[in-house]
């Protein structure tokens, strides 16, 4: 464990908590893409199948349980508990265009052609594009609530910090996972536009509004 990975995990955890609290407290999932949250639930499910068979550390296991539980809770709130506030008309990204290519790619490019490894690879590829429905929805509505932009910022920063974690691990641990690194780069690049808007607008107290 290094500081970049730890800060990355904390940032990821806080993004998940921010979203849970936003929906629960405001009893509304307005402006939130249910499709992205569904994709994240798939990402965690396919990545943590070894949750019970492969103990790495208490930290690792407990974080995995929290990620899986909170992603399902978020999906449940959007599609069940507060579905009346779900803005389906603006959440129209075709997720099959994300799931099918990443699934095919995980069969073609992976470290080991075994079910668990292919599912892990699929989850890595899917995670790198899972935020697209959410970013697409923000661009369609032309704006995002400030709390939603904090959620997106924390979520974007987590994988950016992981990029530094991989540099660190390459330098000091001879650790190198090209699949995770390339997917992490794609994931971070997708946030660049949002990062720019967040830093130039939200941090100056303005509302995040995209040129529609």
């Amino acid at each position: 464990m290094n500081i970049f990975r730890f800060l990355g995990d904390i940032s990821h955890l806080s993004a998940i908590i921010i979203l849970l609290l936003k929906i629960w407290k405001s009893r509304s999932c307005a402006g939130i893409s249910g499709k992205s949250q569904l994709l994240f639930a798939i990402v965690f499910t396919t990545r943590y199948l070894d949750l019970f068979t492969n103990f790495i550390s208490f930290y690792n296991t407990s974080m995995k349980v929290v990620y899986v539980a909170s992603s399902y809770a978020t999906v449940w709130m959007i599609y069940s508990k507060f579905k009346a506030t779900y803005d389906g008309n603006h959440d129209t990204f075709r997720v099959e265009f994300l799931i099918v290519p990443t699934a095919i790619l995980s069969f073609l490019v992976n470290h080991d052609f075994t079910p668990l490894e292919i599912l892990w690879t699929f989850s890595i590829y899917l995670e790198s594009v899972a935020i697209l429905p959410q970013l697409f929805m923000v661009s369609k509505t032309g704006e995002a609530e400030t709390i939603t932009s904090h959620y997106l910022f924390a979520l974007g920063i987590y994988r950016t910090l992981y990029l530094f974690n991989w540099i660190w691990r390459y330098q000091f641990e001879e650790f190198f996972d090209l699949i995770a690194i390339v997917a992490g780069l794609v994931q971070t690049v997708l946030y660049c536009d949002f990062f720019y808007l967040y830093i130039t607008k939200v941090l100056k107290g303005k509302k995040l509004s995209l040129p529609a």
Partner: peptide, 10 residues
């Protein structure tokens, strides 16, 4: 080189 099989990152 590539990490050990058990992916130790979240």
């Amino acid at each position: 080189e590539v990490l050990s099989e058990d992916h130790d990152e979240l």
